[in-house]
Every structure is written in structure tokens, then in C-alpha cells.
């Protein structure tokens, strides 16, 4: 059975993001639930990564987008959102690293990569 764990700072990051982009935050969390259900039902990370709301990033990080977000009013433009997660098979845990949009994408990936490298080192100890 897989479990979810928040990285330190994820909650603040999510709080800030969802205040501005509520629909996107809702959709990305719904997609996270789908990703998590697939992990639990198939126990196959590769199968979960093959979904079309999933994007592969360096170091095995996965970015989930906000596909399926409902538009509150017609003509409203939704922000392209990325929720960065990392699955550790060893302890069957899906770590939530960070949430952001296209503007912060490069910096988000950089930060997540560093965190994942340290997490791998911790797991290998």
C-alpha cells in the first residue's frame, strides 16, 4: 500500500499557489489522486508515469499537470500548473516536493533535483 508524504515547505508553497489559482490546484490534486490510485492498484511506477497528465523530469521526478481543470467562466485562461512528486519504491512512498507554474518551472526543477538527490542518499544509507 502506497503512502503520501509532504516535503518540508510544500504546504506553504501549496497554500500560496492555491490562493491565486484555486481551479488549477483542485485539478492537480484530483490528478494526484488518480496517479496515486494507479500506483496502489498496479504497484507499477512506469504505468502511472504513462498517463497523459504526467511529465517526466530529471532524476526520476514526475510533474503532474492540471489537465481537466474546469473553467469558472468562459474565456478564462488557466495557468499551466506542475505538481512535482517523487516515488520511492523502497518504502512505497510518494513524496510531494513542490507546486508551481510555467514561470517558476526552471527553478522548481532545480530545487526538486537537489532535494531528490539528498533523499536518495538518505534512502541508500
Amino acid at each position: 500500500m502506497w503512502e503520501l508524504s509532504k516535503a518540508d515547505g510544500f504546504e506553504n508553497c501549496f497554500k500560496k499557489f492555491s490562493r491565486k489559482h484555486r481551479a488549477e490546484a483542485n485539478a492537480v490534486m484530483a490528478n494526484l489522486e488518480t496517479f496515486f490510485c494507479i500506483l496502489n492498484e498496479t504497484n507499477n511506477i512506469q504505468a502511472a508515469k504513462r498517463q497523459n497528465f504526467v511529465r517526466k523530469e530529471p532524476e526520476g521526478i514526475v510533474a503532474l499537470d492540471s489537465r481537466g481543470a474546469p473553467r469558472e467562466t468562459k474565456g478564462t485562461k488557466l495557468k499551466a500548473t506542475r505538481l512535482y512528486v517523487y516515488a520511492v519504491e523502497l518504502d512505497s512512498t510518494l513524496y510531494l516536493l513542490r507546486i508551481g507554474d510555467k514561470d517558476s518551472q526552471a527553478q522548481d526543477i532545480k530545487t526538486c533535483t537537489k532535494v531528490v538527490k539528498k533523499l536518495r542518499w538518505e534512502c541508500g544509507r
Binding site: E3, L4, S5, D8, M29, L96, V115, K118
Partner: peptide
């Protein structure tokens, strides 16, 4: 704050589903 993050992870609460989180 990343140094402390790893230590935090070892102790951080785990959740069974997204609603719980």
C-alpha cells in the same frame, strides 16, 4: 532549509490518500 528537510521527512506524517493529506 534542505538540510533539515531530509530529517523532517523521516518523521513527517504519511497519508493514505489525497483527501487525508
Amino acid at each position: 532549509s534542505e538540510e533539515t528537510q531530509m530529517g523532517m521527512w523521516a518523521m513527517s506524517k504519511k497519508h493514505k490518500n489525497v483527501s487525508d493529506l
